[in-house]
Design a binder for these strands. Structure first.
Lengths: 179, 179
DNA sequence: TGCAGCATGTAATTTGTTACATGATTAA
DNA sequence: TTAATCATGTAACAAATTACATGCTGCA
């Protein structure tokens, strides 16, 4: 399940250009499967070469031809086969957590800055997920809703864990009232 | 913050071999920064070449020489600089979620198998985190505890989200009592 | 005047994964 | 006898990121 497979999946919803798919990678797939043009265009070229997608080139004025891709029946077979994998991965690669492992080598200011930034980022992510287009060409498919909910739930969980435990990382003495 | 930097960080705790570090990548860092020998050994070679670590070769019978690495003061500078980054990443790459986006192209059996496997995997992860060594050479540093708690909390959150929402993905009609 | 959006791609680089290659010791 | 642990590494491959390269339209 790489960028190529995800592109195939997107095309089951109707023909699209690389540019269209990029927007989809930014919105629905943004929080768990990022991909830029540098991945998408080569992926589409390979899929076309292998006969898994067809393309129609639509001439435009002042812009490169718009290449609209459709999935072929071979492509559909390849997708179905990919969806057969009973153990799809879910990988995290976190510089953030690695850095927090070495919090004892950092100043409180540094730690607090990193944490504030991370919380801010998570808030933005939740907002992006909340603003996902709901009704473009019919209702959001059930899988998409599940995944959006997932992203929102995880971001909310992370935020609360970080808020509840950030004091564990710094050296500051909390002043407590009384006594 | 790549494998090299994490290796440097590990060495602030004392000298270690590539083999030792691999164990650390499997335990403490396992859930958010996986790395195999194929990443670790080249990383250490590069660090040594650049003078960020020193090594002592300890001859052994019937085994390759044990190479014990220590961080140098240049290495410490490089690490401190890396810890300066105010926006460390936290990236997710999920075939699982991508697949769930296309749940409408899958059979209920397929979906259920994938979900059961994922829940099982998450349970195993939580167990691994709970069994992390606590008192090897002094107490677990605060960052390590924060990160272990983080992993456990996230895994628990994911499990409960999946359990609460898996019905959304399948086509089964739930039989409800009464009426 | 400048920026965002539309629209495509290539090339170099970085990074990591997987498989290969070796081989002794020890516990089940 | 079989697997796990100790212990190192290389080479081929796969994949993604980043920078480069082009250029019009429409809005503020």
């Amino acid at each position: 399940m790489d960028v190529k497979t995800v592109c195939l999946g997107m095309l089951t919803d109707g023909p699209a250009s690389g540019y269209d798919m990029k927007k989809c990678f930014e919105s629905t797939f943004g929080h768990f499967f990022p991909a830029g043009y540098g991945s998408i265009y080569p992926a589409l070229a390979t899929l076309a070469r292998d006969g898994l997608v067809e393309l129609e080139e639509i001439p435009q004025e002042g812009k490169p031809d718009r290449k609209v891709y459709s999935i072929t029946s071979n492509g559909r077979d390849a997708l179905d086969k990919a969806l057969t994998n009973p153990n799809p991965t879910h990988r995290v690669r976190s510089e953030f957590l690695a850095m927090m492992c070495f919090a004892h080598l950092m100043s409180d200011e540094q730690i607090n800055e990193v944490i504030d930034n991370k919380i801010h980022e998570l808030n933005e992510l939740m907002q992006i997920i909340n603003e996902l287009p709901t009704d473009v060409d019919g209702p959001m498919p059930k899988g998409t809703r599940f995944v959006a909910g997932f992203g929102h739930f995880v971001a909310a969980s992370l935020t609360s864990y970080i808020n509840d435990n950030r004091d564990m990382l710094t050296n500051e003495e909390k002043s407590h009232s009384g006594c």
